[in-house]
Amino acid sequence: MKILVCISKTPDTTAKIAFTDNNTKFDAAGVQWIINPNDEYYGLVRAVELKEADPSATIHLINVGGADADAIIRKALALGGDEAIRINTESADSFGIATQIAQVARENNYDLIFLGKETIDYNGSSVGGMVAELLDLPYISLATKFELAGTTATVTREIEGGEEVCTVSLPVVISCTKGMAEQRIPNMRGIMAARTKPLKVVEPVAADTLTQVAAFSLPPAKAGVKLVDADNVQELVRLLHEEAKVI
């Protein structure tokens, strides 16, 4: 079984969000980069668990990005995975990323493609569905559980106000969310092994650009909290009813 896990590089969850170049680019100055948590905690860790259950499985990691992504790719390799592929291009939009991933997937015939439910920077939740469509594969989004018996997967996915359990034959593309697996911390052996695992750098194929960022903006600052005394909760209810008009 061959598993492909897609890894995005995102700013740390606590990074200060600011923009440069007349608000058209993210200000990366001083930003700590991490593996997109949805890719790492859910997609990657679940793939590693599947390989632990079936050591004949191979895991490839894929990232679309420049050489500055190598550090987070090594971190991902420390958690697991046999080798990594970096498509050497700064993607213009999600369709560009999906086109590159689909090209590698076509060449390698993966049984399973895992991604996080979304990146925490662009919140697009788009690449998984695009890859599935480009490969003409089924796509199960927002998966919270994934079990495999032979070539049949049983997957639980989120729906509004509940969940749905379904089965599908491999190959399949899965976007992963909370519940799939638990966050792991790489151990020293993993970190040492990651240094020598192959990280192939592949040049991109031509890809269409369907969208472009015109400008970023920050939400208006909050006016500040209005505190109500703990002995006077009726006042809070009055404010919510008469001032905020939400109840």
């Binding site: 939009d93 369709f95 469509e133 796509y139 269409d208 369907l210």
Partner: peptide, 24 residues
């Protein structure tokens, strides 16, 4: 809607119709 079904459908249609997608 950018709900569970929309998140599964819109990206697929974007790739199929070569139509730019803004999600959310």
């Amino acid at each position: 809607s950018n709900n569970t079904d929309g998140k599964a459908l819109a990206p697929r249609l974007s790739a199929r119709l070569k139509a730019g997608l803004v999600s959310g």
